[in-house]
Amino acid sequence: MKTKKYLLIFLWLVSQASLWAQAATTPAAPDPQVNQLPQIMTWVFLIAGSLLFIVAMAYMIKVNQFLYKRALQLEARLNGVELPADGSAVVADPAGDGFWTRMRKKYWEDAVPIDREADILSHHDFDGIRELDNRLPPWWVNMFILTIIYALGYMFYYHWGGNGLSQTQEYEQEVAIAKKNIAAALAGKANAVDESSVLALTDSGPLGEGELIFKNNCVACHGAKGEGGVGPNLTDEYWLHGGGIKNVFKTIKYGVPEKGMISWSAQLKPSDMQKVASYILTLKGTNPPNPKAPQGEIWKEEATAKPDSTAKEALPSTTK
């Protein structure tokens, strides 16, 4: 019975190891969506299993109690001693400890009471300090054993033969799942705008949001009013990487890393990039104080016929 108990605990721990280590992800599987179910099932199984285990243990304890009583009665009868039919006299063991007391002493705590501790007191003292020779607290020993089993299970799961993922595999899985979820989230939404489909917004609502995004992210380099600073002036007619909504959107989305403009695609949603790009276009001709000298080429809206090709042409010419 003891072996069985440890085996069960061991199996539980091994399953735990995988849950802890991958709390954020799901176990290896080609399709993450399909895999949602087993994750829940693992928990259901665990909880149900633990409950079942407790019930089974309680039942076994009852059976054990009953058999113990019967055995004592049998033994007493063989010795010619009559016991009360309800067996109350035999439940208590000779030392006077009841079942729960025995269980507590065996598995939880077993200190010698203070009034009897003279029996286990060391004879020698160190500068007046004496030592008791109490048994190791059983719960402490059990906890130590469990952590050792956990350690072995962990090493087995991740290194000696289990299915534990390496951290690189975990990462690849996380990215794969995210890709799928993003694709699903973007499907058919306004957020799906990209540089080929984006249009300039003119409503004051989105433009106001665009202004806020600009204030939070762009002013450090382009100035509070878009007059330019580290980055170019956004209020004149000159553009380094092409003007117009499609080119501005594209510059924001991909950045121009070699010139210090970072890609914002990780930080701004496509719809946000559309808003801020639209706002930037409204800055044209505002003539803020301390403008930075014009850079790039004059952009004329007529050229929007082929925004992409123009942008590509504009790129190399900017490194002056």
Binding site: R130, L132, D133, P137
Partner: peptide, 12 residues
């Protein structure tokens, strides 16, 4: 020393 009590368990 401060509690004036013996150490609980030498084995521990």
């Amino acid at each position: 020393k401060a509690a004036n009590r013996p150490v609980y368990s030498y084995k521990l």
